[in-house]
Design a protein around this nucleic acid. Structure first.
Length: 803
RNA sequence: GGGGAUGUGGUGGAACUGGUAGACACGCUUGGCUUAGAACCAAGUGCCGCAAGGCGUGGGGGUUCGACUCCCUCCAUCCCUACCA
């Protein structure tokens, strides 16, 4: 009698067994290591579908690698500092710490119920002083290495709440809580010189086994551009305005210069002129986010100042433009309306000259953005853009009005946050002068909040910031991207209180495979790469890159949209785990979409996944392995076909798991194999050769499926009783000679359309093939009386007659 | 605004290197089992057409003997845009 498949019972008992035996704790040994890391979650309270998908992918690969005899390290931890904890604390009157701790506890239980093979003995949480102590140490070392400095920069300021707002907290220009009009404000902040590594961050992308789109995004983000620095003398003074341009070939088309509203000259003019001041104030009613800046209506004001063109000496007006960023280039743009879309829009609006200085073959309407041939450019007329740029730079160098310059779009990393729930920046100010806290005095511990008191920025906690007369503590915390830039390395030495990294770090790093959401393609991954390189230069880690291979998973959607509380379209994974079991949820996640694409949630497909596991269960549950030797058996055609299918499936699944991360097609192949087993083979009273073949298929199916559905496979493996080892202790081998077939299906096309199919032996000559193909009735009918002009033969695949 | 992706039946997807479009599932239809339903089993299922056949991978154009795949162009959706993580 077949027992019913009851996932709740078997999953719980196997998970308890894993826990009790510390099955997934890793130790250094002499096997090849494999460090498989999934991006750790922000402990928001509950797992969401994106987590389930991410962590299932990582677990499938970890389990597969373990079966391939790799020494696998798969840790898990918590990105535990951040804004949501502060918001929840204000809303629910609990401290951010308690809220976070409770969430972690809950989510950890959920992760365990998914059967994820984590080494929990290395668990980290970034809000733990034992963790962030080392972050403060790193910051100090960066400071000593000259990578840290202070400068003013813009933030979203809520004048009512008197706080700095994150971009997402500014809604339609208003503070989300106060509703007050948000303004840009300049404050002093700590910066890390990521730009020192811009060139290397760009160059070493080439060697990474990462998706091309991610590498491209990083490349564009770093944004190396070659151009020129060009100086314009301000008329009536000896002062100059310096601009950066990637298109010096368009210099004869300059119609205006535009200053950033935050440029020192703009601020000076604002102090002198109330109209300018009004305009600068207007520019402050913006949001710091680039997308908002770039889509805002282009506005400007003429300063009345004029500069002289460095080549023609013509007078050029200087404007202030709200679209000019202080942080990029020199904060001054040379406006060439004929050949730049933004400059064109600006010039149209304010009736400035629009001159064409570049000509191309196909473009007629200005602005012409492509390179081409110069016109209206004096002695450079007729020259091509690239050559002209070089010549013009030469002339500017000669006259001392310019030079060649390479610029990066990448800006230094502002790490200061004016918040409570973050890692304190280990600095004190003695009489206003910043000093790093001594290493022996680290960590600077985040002060606890008074009971039932909402969190406030550290600057308002007097006991914390006032140390003694004339000595104040820094009140900013670190950007949480700091916390997540080095956790992958700390996992390897998680329990070492004496050193940040140790011999284990040397053994496990780099991460062999890093898995996480595509939304982290730029910031988190770039910061982590930078950290790794900076730590390397401090002699703290080896190698140039932290993540050898990267897998970016797509979003989990419902009704075509990202699941979110505000849209009310969330699906709670836990209810599905409770109802169907972890194996079904894991199988569903892996089967429904390839990992890199977005996944549309579908209720009924979960049923389908569950149905497949039930089929596997009823196929195997009442069967036991029978030891037989191939040499004593005589296989008939059907037996051999099944063996061929089993081995071909194993080969395909290996390729899909390893090379393509294509779990959906691997599962489809396993389903095909399961469907391929003849019904009569499913009985227990069959002859020995058939028994051997069906046993082989069962062994392969369980082995291939176990990384995805580990509980049911482990359970059935034990019952099947092939050996007394865990199912994860070895991976089967396919036999290449079984895969060789003598026949194939020839496709016959006439003018590229399929008109016939026939099964024939391989390795025939083209003449033979043509002969056979043209005999087929349907092919004959389509050729008719027409002459065959040409025939194309693709060996052992198809023949195409062209008439 | 800029950067990066995606678009294939009623649905999720497959086609890996330019060579059979729709594997594998879901759903649906019909039949079996059942008092009935659920579950399960079997057959069918891209669209139009009685059929022969034609059409078909977001729209339009191109390259090729042959295009989901390569090129141009347009449209829609999603991700990132430096203080959400």
């Amino acid at each position: 009698m077949i027992d019913k498949y009851n996932p709740q019972i078997i999953e719980k008992s196997i998970q308890d067994h894993w826990d009790a035996n510390k099955t997934f704790e890793s130790k250094i040994d002499d096997r090849e290591k494999y460090y498989c890391l999934s991006m750790f979650p922000y402990p928001s309270g509950k797992l969401h579908m994106g987590h389930v998908r991410n962590y299932t992918i990582g677990d499938v690969i970890s389990r597969y690698k373990r079966m391939q005899n790799f020494n696998v390290f798969q840790p898990m931890g918590w990105d535990a500092f951040g804004l949501p904890a502060e918001n929840a604390a204000i809303q629910n009157k609990v401290s951010p710490k308690n809220w976070t701790d409770k969430n972690i506890e809950n989510m950890k239980t959920q992760l365990k119920s998914l059967g994820l093979s984590y080494d929990w003995s290395k668990e980290l949480r970034t809000c733990d002083p034992k963790y962030y102590k080392w972050e403060q140490v790193i910051f100090k070392k960066f400071y000593e290495a000259g990578l840290v400095y202070r400068k003013k920069s813009l933030v979203n300021w809520d004048p009512v709440d008197q706080t700095v707002l994150a971009n997402e907290q500014v809604i339609d220009g208003m503070g989300w809580r106060s509703g007050a009009k948000v303004e840009l404000k300049e404050i002093d902040q700590w910066f890390i010189k990521i730009t020192d590594y811009a060139e290397e961050l760009l160059d070493s992308l080439d060697n990474l086994n990462w998706p091309e789109n991610v590498k491209l995004m990083q490349k564009n983000w770093i944004g190396k551009s070659n151009g020129a620095e060009i100086k314009y003398q301000i008329l009536g003074t000896s002062e100059e305005l310096t601009t950066f341009s990637t298109r010096p070939d368009t210099i004869f088309g300059v119609a205006f210069l535009a200053l950033s509203p935050n440029h020192p000259l703009s601020i000076k003019l604002g102090d002198e002129n109330s109209e300018v001041k009004k305009f600068l104030d207007l520019c402050k009613e913006s949001k710091a986010a680039e997308a908002d800046m770039a889509t805002a209506e282009k506005l400007g004001i003429n300063t009345g100042i004029k500069v002289s063109h460095p080549i023609t000496n013509k007078e050029i007006p200087v404007w202030i433009g709200n679209f000019v960023l202080l942080d990029y280039g020199t904060g001054v743009v040379m406006g060439v309306p004929g050949h730049d879309a933004r400059d064109y829009e600006f010039a149209k609006k304010y009736n400035l000259n629009i001159d064409q200085v570049i000509e191309t073959d196909d473009n007629l309407d200005l602005p012409i953005l492509d390179k081409g041939k110069l016109i209206n450019s004096d002695k450079y007329d007729g020259m091509l853009s690239d050559k002209a740029s070089n010549e013009i730079i030469k002339e500017l160098v000669k006259s001392g009005k310019g030079s060649e310059l390479t610029q990066f779009r990448l800006r230094d990393w502002g790490v200061s946050r004016q918040r409570y729930w973050g890692c304190p920046i280990p600095v004190v100010y003695k009489n206003g002068e910043a000093q790093l806290v001594n290493e022996k005095d680290l960590p600077v511990v985040l002060p606890e909040l008074e009971k039932n008191k909402s969190p406030t920025p550290l600057s308002q906690i007097q006991d914390f910031i006032n140390i003694e007369d004339g000595v104040l503590r820094e009140s900013d915390t670190f950007d949480t991207f700091m916390d997540s830039s080095w956790y992958h390395a700390r996992f390897t030495s998680a329990n070492n209180d004496q050193e940040i990294f140790d011999d284990s770090t040397k053994y496990w790093l780099p991460v062999d495979l890093y898995i996480g959401g595509i939304e982290h393609a730029i910031l988190h991954l770039l910061y982590s790469r930078f950290f790794h390189k900076a730590l390397r230069d401090l002699g703290m880690v080896d190698g140039d890159e932290p993540f050898k291979r990267l897998l970016t998973q797509g979003m989990v959607l419902k009704d075509g949209a990202k699941m979110s509380k505000s849209k009310g379209n969330t699906v709670d994974p836990q209810s599905y785990i409770d109802k169907y079991g972890a194996d079904t949820v894991r199988l569903y996640m892996m089967f429904t979409s390839p990992p890199e694409q977005s996944l549309e949630w579908s209720e009924s497909s979960v049923e389908g996944a569950s149905r497949f596991l039930k089929k596997i269960w009823s196929l195997i549950e009442n069967k036991t392995y029978k030891p037989l030797s191939v040499d004593d058996l005589n296989f008939d055609k059907k037996d051999l076909e099944l063996r061929q299918k089993s081995h071909a499936t194993l080969k395909k699944v290996e390729n899909d798991y390893e090379k393509r991360f294509s779990f959906n097609t691997a599962i489809a192949a396993i389903m095909e194999l399961q469907n391929f087993i003849p019904d009569e083979y499913k009985n227990n009273d069959i002859n020995e050769s058939s028994k051997f073949c069906v046993d082989e298929a069962i062994i392969f199916i369980l082995k291939m499926l176990s990384p995805i559905a580990p509980h049911i496979c482990e359970h059935l493996w034990k019952k099947f009783n092939y050996d007394d080892k865990s199912i994860e202790s070895w991976w089967p081998k396919f036999e290449e000679e079984l895969l060789e077939v003598e026949e194939f299906e020839l496709i016959i096309q006439v003018n590229g359309k399929v008109r016939g199919k026939t099964i024939i032996e391989k390795n025939r000559s083209q003449d033979e093939i043509e002969n056979i193909a043209s005999q087929l009735e349907n092919v004959k009918a389509h050729i008719g009386d027409n002459e065959i002009k040409k025939s194309i033969y693709v060996k052992d695949k198809l023949i195409n007659f062209v008439i």
